[in-house]
Nucleic acid binder design. Sequence first.
RNA 1: GCUCGUGUGGUGUAGCCAGGUCCAUCAUCGCGGGUUUUCAUCCCGCUGACCCGGGUUCGAAUCCCGGCACGAGCACCA
Length: 468
Amino acid sequence: MPELKNLEDTKPVFRFAPNPNGPLSFGHARGIVINGSYAEEHKGTLILRFDDTDTTVKPPELAAYDLIPQEVEWLLGRPADRIVVASDRIPVYYEHAEKMLRNKFGYVCKCTAEAFRQFRESKTNCPCRDKSVEENLSDWNKMLDGTYKPGDAVVRVKTDMTLKNPALRDWPALRMQDTVANPHPRPNIRSKYKVWPLLDFQSAVEDHLQGVTHIIRGKDLMDSTRKQTLLYEHFGWSYPETIYWGRVKVHEWGGFSTSKMRASIENGEYSGWDDPRLPTIQGLQARGIQADALRNFWIELAVTQKDISVPLATLFSHNTKKIDDDAPRLSFIRDPVEVEILGDVPSEIELPIHPNHSDKGTRTISLNPPNVFIESEDARGSYRLKEFADIDEDGNIESVERSDKRPIIHWTSTTTSEHSTLLIPNQEEIEYISGRVESNDYSAGTIVQLERIGYAIVTNEGFLLMHE
RNA sequence: GCUCGUGUGGUGUAGCCAGGUCCAUCAUCGCGGGUUUUCAUCCCGCUGACCCGGGUUCGAAUCCCGGCACGAGCACCA
């Protein structure tokens, strides 16, 4: 990761600030990993902050308040150092809004959104801009007590209507929301407040109050930095060091959004947030992706402002490195064909659990009766049953030692195997392949390698193929 | 449209701020080979890139100008 600037005097403070409107996704992991790794590297602090100030467009979800900290802990291997919830801090934001009005760098604007858009485009001051402090405070109170309704009035930060960048012109800081129709999900908040800060204001004030020193976030928030810097100037604060990353697309996933996923889950396309096909933290967990691997993946992509598109193979490659040494080998026979082995067949045979780690012990396959299953694809000509014997097309043992270059295939015996199902999470649908798996007592969640197929995770239904 | 940002091999990434040591780093993918009784792991090797055009300079991936391409913001969302 790139070196940070402005690290001189104090321990740095970072923050990861999602909207708790659903479980975390793959993309959120970047914010957690990068901010968390920097915090760890510099013995700094990581704040997890819930920016839950919108009850209408992207309403928060109660369950996420408990789930997200767990997901952060899973990913980092340690919890966030501090959790801040914006909806607990509304009075603090009000204080700052009032200070803004009193010090004349903010005003209550009663123009409609459309009317203000005209002013913004024409670089014209809105008539509300020149109101007295008294008038602004009076209007502010009418916002607070509900005399005004959502849409009637907002608090704006006075910047300059002639600024080159239209996004920065007298930007809105607080607005009203109908929290009776759309109550906040947290039981102690519900309909308590009518006036709510917008992200740029809430985040800016909170960053200052929490002593955040470094903000690392998406470059879509570049204009936010500029807006917030203008606010900091008004307050006489200095803005944190800011670093941006560009947009990341995973080729196989394309564009998933929390709202899109929610809709797809609700209409039954996916089983839930933990569906292994979904790019959620839970989906990745279900798919056997290790926290370490995900961390390494994001650190390797680093923090650049380029918009990139990466293949899943990159993530899988990191994952393979993490799991291979621990993954017991197992035989899974797709579309099994039974073959009776003729000749001098031992009653049982021992196979290593892991070819590179003999200390992991052996597995025993019974060959009494001497019948085995092989994949129908492999059932042509002669072959070698791995770790056992060379067999001719009729099932006769030709040699116990490897005698030629015939293909080596995996197999299992009829006795030491049972029916099982292999689930393959393709993009569109989950493919179910039934077959015979070598008998084992691995519990759900264990990651194994199905020889010649790939890495899979044991589930209650059978095996879920992770990747090759 | 206006504003901001980014352009290094198939995909990511280092180098760019402080020009030469860069016939450009590392990883991944692909291909080939070795180890291995898995098409896994591990090891070795190969192919492959500085968006384009000017300029400054003895010298530019690095600095300047102009194009082009891509992305984001211009929400009473986060």
